[in-house]
């Protein structure tokens, strides 16, 4: 089976700072792949390279079979609609209401509007994150956890095949984190999307992952399921499970 995302020998530095140093991964249909790494280890940089918010220095980087570096803007934008991105800080458009936040990508990709129409699509997506009643509120009126849910709804509305989560539980209290994780599991199933999840929250990793990669020194340090890795004797791997 062809992977949805295929990365080989990925290198990325900022000046002298080598962040990714020959990283590789393959994300397959229906899978929840978790990447864990210390803060500052280049997790966000990796995600940003995948959607070309940052240009990788070298390596193979294919999304849905298309090589991302050197892709023309139009095709890149088409691919980006198939890849949802949940930002670390939610990144809701703070001058727009919840409704307008969800309508924003949809109105600019009319081919994604189905027969139900924009209004119903917005409402249905909000329902699936359990926040239909917030439709006319501004982002600043919502709690951090609610903002994260709306941000998830905004990526879901284009019905992506892949969702990239950048630390979905960061900055949230344990109970809200748990709710977000459950919501992620629910929408993954509902929307049949595959997910690449970046985190240093091991509870999150345990619940959601089918497979994990430990990112260390810009490389794949270890790979396996949660229970395999938790039994590892490698001190770097062990440090995450303490």
């Amino acid at each position: 089976m062809e992977p949805l995302i295929e990365i080989k020998d990925l290198y990325k530095s900022f000046g002298e700072n080598r962040v990714l140093n020959g990283f590789k991964l393959g994300l397959y249909e229906g899978e929840n792949l978790v990447i864990v790494g210390k803060s500052g280890s280049g997790k966000s940089v990796l995600l940003k390279c995948i959607v070309r918010l940052l240009e990788a220095d070298s390596g193979t980087l294919k999304v849905l079979g298309q090589p991302i570096p050197g892709l023309d803007q139009y095709t890149l934008d088409q691919i980006r609609t198939e890849v949802g991105f949940l930002f670390q800080g939610s990144a809701l458009y703070d001058s727009m209401t919840v409704r307008e936040n969800l309508e924003f990508p949809l109105r600019r990709h009319p081919e994604k509007i189905n027969s139900q129409g924009v209004e119903t699509m917005v409402l249905n997506t909000l329902r699936s994150v359990g926040l239909a009643h917030t439709i006319d509120l501004m982002p600043e009126e919502l709690s951090g956890g609610m903002q994260r849910r709306i941000a998830l709804a905004r990526t879901l509305i284009l019905q992506p095949r892949i969702i990239l989560y950048d630390e979905p539980t960061s900055g949230l209290d344990p109970i809200t984190s748990k709710e977000i994780i459950e919501l992620m599991l629910k929408v993954q199933k509902e929307y049949q999307a595959s997910a690449l999840i970046i985190t240093h929250d091991m509870d999150c990793a345990r619940v959601i992952s089918n497979r994990m990669i430990i990112l260390f020194d810009g490389q794949n340090h270890a790979e396996g399921t949660y229970s395999e890795l938790s039994r590892s004797s490698d001190p770097v791997v062990q440090a995450f499970f303490k």
Partner: peptide, 21 residues
């Protein structure tokens, strides 16, 4: 200030990755 804070909070990046301009 408005565009600057949109940049810093990654709102501009969010527009980009949803395939909008």
């Amino acid at each position: 200030a408005e565009l600057g804070s949109m940049k810093v909070t990654e709102q501009i990046a969010a527009m980009e990755v949803s395939g909008t301009n």
